[in-house]
Design a protein around this nucleic acid. Structure first.
Lengths: 200, 200
DNA sequence: TGTACATCAGTGAACGCGCGTTCACTGATGTAC
DNA sequence: TGTACATCAGTGAACGCGCGTTCACTGATGTAC
């Protein structure tokens, strides 16, 4: 009974799921309540049985994204060998596939520039996401034996988020692809993990 | 006669100036025609004597920002010694002052995440800005004697834009400031220009 | 120097539209007896 | 097993509001004579 979601809970999860995707793709103000509910297979009136208002939805959708990202990072940097995990994370995070799947994955390359303008609760989620990402990198760098793991974590996180942000802003496919490849190469080089083969 | 702007041209420049500031601060959709015109000391009806429509304004405002940024980069990377110019650029671009002046300066940390959703003309301006920035860095790196100037330019540009984007997303002043300091340090270290003193 | 007139940047009321939100209602589901 | 009823997730018409845009009008400026 506790692990089985009720009908209403499943509906709510479906709305949040659609909201998370739409927010990544169109920004926090890019989708309206009516369109969102339609995508979830409902009509707009029912929205307020699930959320206080639109801001409340955005905050919950961002909370969900943050948790997803935390899991993703733990998958790469948790148990595995630090060098191998970091190399795989870089290859995944800065892949052309990730570049194209704008409605999925890490919210930082999608939402950090509008974070300042988000309602407080939503903004806190973005801030928590940044803090967690930097922390996870720092821990991995420590295990890797770098001498300045905290500084390096800030620098590497900035480059990762910046590279994906810029690549997605470029219309030209090959230019975007080249930018990501350059960043992957240079990130691994400066972390001293460039001798490992790229994944698949 | 040619170098003296007419009354109408000066008014148009004033509107564009306010638009550029507002777009950097609130995003391309963050300010309405009425508010913008009020800031320029006018009423909203007059707007259409200067621009075709709102999209036209956004494209022209971005064009203006792009030219301003090009000048800024030329100031740092043009005539000067490459190492000195790069060090000064990093100190300026990633300073706490720049972080706070969100309505001024380089548009990339403000607009690249919504670039995909911008009208074509506006999007082209952002793309041109990225291309120019990367090109200017590459030229400076070549003069500096780096062996992979193009790869390095993509990497450094990504870190610079990413670091400012993330710093501005952080509510906590000291955390934001620390992130910028970390990035400045690491950027200079990996460019081999960390022996130079930071500017003021 | 003074008067008449054309020009045109800017005004402000009005418009249609899409948005977030409200609310009376529907109809399927599950429980009471 | 069958009937009556309460519950409540979801519906869809309606609202007020802010937005981009239009347009008839104003009034200052500069030129013609």
């Amino acid at each position: 009974m506790a692990d089985k979601l009720s009908h209403k809970e499943r509906t709510r999860a479906r709305i949040l799921d659609e909201a998370a995707r739409a927010i990544r793709e169109y920004g926090s103000e890019g989708i309206g309540v009516a369109t969102l509910m339609k995508r979830a297979g409902l009509t707009h009136g029912g929205f307020y049985a699930h959320f206080e208002n639109r801001d409340d939805l955005v905050a919950h959708a961002l909370d969900r994204m943050r948790l997803d990202s935390r899991e993703m990072l733990a998958r790469y940097l948790g148990e595995r060998d630090a060098a191998e995990g970091l190399s795989a994370l870089i290859d995944y995070y800065l892949s052309d596939q990730t570049r194209k799947l704008v409605d999925q994955g890490c919210p930082l390359p999608a939402l950090t520039q509008e974070a300042r303008r988000l309602p407080a609760a939503a903004r806190d989620q973005v801030e928590g996401g940044i803090r967690n990402f930097r922390g996870q990198l720092e821990a991995a760098f420590t295990r890797l034996g770098l001498e300045n793991p905290s500084t390096m974590a800030a620098s590497v996180l900035s480059e990762m988020v910046g590279a994906m942000t810029l690549a997605r802003a470029l219309n030209d496919e090959s230019e975007a692809s080249d930018l990501l490849r350059s960043s992957r190469l240079e990130l691994k080089r400066r972390l001293g993990i460039d001798e490992l083969p790229a994944e698949h």
